[in-house]
């Protein structure tokens, strides 16, 4: 198979992922880093970030950005918790309303972006403040969840044999991932997202429904954020200050996953790798033991810089090959 320029970032992501995992596995082999248990834990620990990053992938592919992700997670979690606590809403209803609300909220931001031609950065920044504020309006502090259904869901484990188990959050993450690949690769909506991010003006002149695609992308991201909020509540609480700044981790995961920040190029699978890379760095630093956990942030910063530089390199190279 030939490698095209647009595949370079995701191949680099895969290489970095394997390199980090291999290095950590060798360095901490005596402490059991290289085990299925640790590997499965990447999916369990990073389910919330992973789901939010998948929504973010579509937004960035379309050439936009969504800064409201973390706030929507916080709002969703406190909504579910206080709705069950205060209004005795059945958990299924609370979850359903939360997912619907997140989708409508995202779609609303998309509509503002579409109809007023405003930059997504500013619109979702406003959304971020709005959702965070609304969360604190519902309740000022963390609210515990205690409901038989929730307890069961939270303790649910899918045994894979050999003592390896997947939690409900990990399963939700994997399901979201598979559906996202289907959306991106096998639906017109997904392909239109790529076209919109590749060149909006061309997409319009090609007769593609760019306006509705834009709105649906933010609705999808809103849905994913709300779903990540649901995953947060599986920790049996809701918290208005949950996931502060998580959107930035999500953007980092998407970009490290090989998606071009300018849109149009990238893969959902890359985002999964990006999330794994962040998880591996964090786990490796925990295993190391003596390093401050803030080194995670430094490592992410360095990686992010490298990937942005790589993107620039790929783009200029592409320009040159097109021009010649």
């Amino acid at each position: 198979m030939r490698i095209t320029a647009k595949q370079i970032p995701i191949i680099a992501t895969l290489a970095v992922c394997l390199l980090l995992y291999g290095t950590a596995a060798i360095a901490f082999h005596d402490r059991g880093f290289f085990s299925v248990g640790v590997f499965v834990n990447f999916f369990i620990d990073n389910a919330m970030l992973g789901i939010a990053s998948i929504g973010m992938t579509f937004v960035i592919l379309s050439g936009g950005i969504d800064l409201s992700v973390g706030s929507v997670i916080g709002l969703t979690s406190i909504f579910i918790a206080s709705a069950m606590d205060r209004y005795k809403l059945p958990p299924i209803v609370a979850i359903f309303v939360a997912l619907l609300g997140g989708t409508v909220f995202g779609g609303g931001m998309g509509a503002v972006i579409r109809y007023f031609g405003l930059p997504p950065f500013l619109v979702t920044l406003a959304g971020m403040f709005f959702a965070r504020g609304a969360g604190f309006l519902l309740h000022l502090e963390s609210v515990p969840i205690d409901h038989p259904f929730y307890n069961a869901l939270s303790e649910f484990h899918l045994a894979l044999g050999g003592g390896i188990e997947l939690t409900a959050s990990a399963l939700i993450f994997l399901a979201t991932f598979i559906i996202a690949i289907y959306l991106a690769q096998y639906t017109r909506f997904g392909r239109n997202v790529y076209a919109l991010g590749g060149n909006e003006q061309s997409a319009v002149l090609m007769g593609l429904p760019t306006g509705s695609v834009k709105m649906r992308v933010y609705a999808l991201s809103g849905f994913c954020s709300a779903l990540a909020g649901v995953v947060y509540t599986l920790g049996l609480s809701g918290n208005p200050s949950a996931a502060v700044g998580l959107e930035l981790d999500a953007i980092a995961a998407v970009v490290i996953g090989g998606t071009l920040l300018t849109g149009g190029v990238g893969y959902v699978a890359g985002t999964l790798l990006g999330v794994l890379i962040l998880g591996i760095i964090q786990t490796a630093i925990t295993f190391q033991g003596s390093l401050s956990s803030w080194w995670t942030k430094i490592a992410i910063g360095v990686l992010l810089l490298i990937f942005i530089l790589l993107q620039r390199f790929v783009q200029t190279r592409k320009l040159r090959t097109t021009a010649s």
């Binding site: 647009k6 017109r188 392909r191 239109n192 790529y194 076209a195 590749g198 060149n199 061309s202 997409a203 090609m206 007769g207 593609l208 429904p209 149009g264 190029v265 592409k318 097109t322």
Partner: peptide, 13 residues
């Protein structure tokens, strides 16, 4: 759309 394949550009939408 430059990044997409020739085939996809022809049938997009």
């Amino acid at each position: 759309i430059p990044h997409l394949s020739v085939a996809e550009n022809i049938s997009l939408g």
